[in-house]
Simulated scan of single mutants.
Amino acid sequence: MINIQQDGKGQPYIQWEQAPGGWKRAWIQTKDGDGDWAGTKRYLNIVRTATADGGPSGNATDFPIFSELPDEQILEAFVAAVCAVTGCKIP
């Protein structure tokens, strides 16, 4: 089972070591107004982090979520797929 945490805004996220010393964070964000550019209200974000427990470092990329699957299921599927494609161990 992949460890899903919650950030200070209550958003679920997974953080894992993609390569030695290369950390990534994926999280689900809710957006309203102009920030909701795809009209879905939910977005999967991915960004690098400097450390295992560090916050986002750099510019995140967001993907609109058109599915009604729970946030945790989307995160687990995304991280598992990235790890499978790149050969990284699933955290």
Rank of each mutant, 00 (worst) to 15 (best):
M1L: 14
G10V: 14
D71V: 08
P12M: 10
T51F: 11
Q18Y: 12
G87R: 14
Q15M: 10
M1F: 03
W27H: 06
K41L: 15
D71E: 06
G54D: 04
I4R: 02
K89A: 05
D71Q: 12
K9T: 15
R42S: 01
S57C: 14
F63A: 13
D53G: 14
W16K: 04
G58E: 07
G22A: 09
F66H: 00
P12I: 09
D34K: 09
V85S: 06
Q29F: 07
P64C: 04
G33E: 03
K31I: 13
K9W: 10
A52W: 02
A19E: 07
D53K: 09
C83H: 01
A19R: 01
D53A: 13
V85M: 11
P70F: 01
N45I: 15
V85A: 03
N59M: 15
T61Q: 12
T40V: 13
A50C: 07
K89E: 06
Q11A: 07
I2K: 00
K89Y: 04
Q11N: 14
A60L: 07
G87H: 04
E76C: 05
G39C: 11
S67A: 11
Q73D: 14
S67M: 07
F66E: 09
Q6R: 15
F66G: 12
P64Y: 04
Q15N: 08
Q11H: 10
A52T: 07
K24I: 12
G10A: 11
V47F: 00
G35S: 12
G10D: 09
G10H: 00
W27S: 11
R42K: 15
E72F: 09
Q5M: 06
R48L: 01
T49A: 13
T30C: 07
W23A: 12
T40P: 00
A26Q: 05
K9P: 10
V82M: 10
E76P: 01
I74C: 01
R48H: 06
P56D: 05
G22V: 15
T40S: 00
S57A: 14
I65T: 06
K24H: 13
P70N: 08
G87K: 10
P56A: 13
P56F: 10
E72G: 15
Y13K: 02
L44K: 00
D36R: 07
Q29A: 14
A84H: 06
A81Y: 01
Y43T: 11
D71C: 04
A60R: 01
W23Q: 02
V82T: 10
V85T: 08
T61V: 13
T61I: 13
K24D: 11
Y43L: 11
G58D: 09
G87L: 08
R25A: 03
F63V: 15
V79H: 00
D53T: 12
P70K: 08
I74A: 10
F66T: 06
Y13A: 02
Y43R: 06
S57Q: 07
G55W: 01
A81K: 03
P70D: 03
V85F: 04
I4P: 08
C88N: 03
K24A: 11
V82W: 05
G35Q: 06
G10P: 03
E17Y: 03
L44M: 04
V47I: 13
I4H: 01
D62M: 15
Q5E: 15
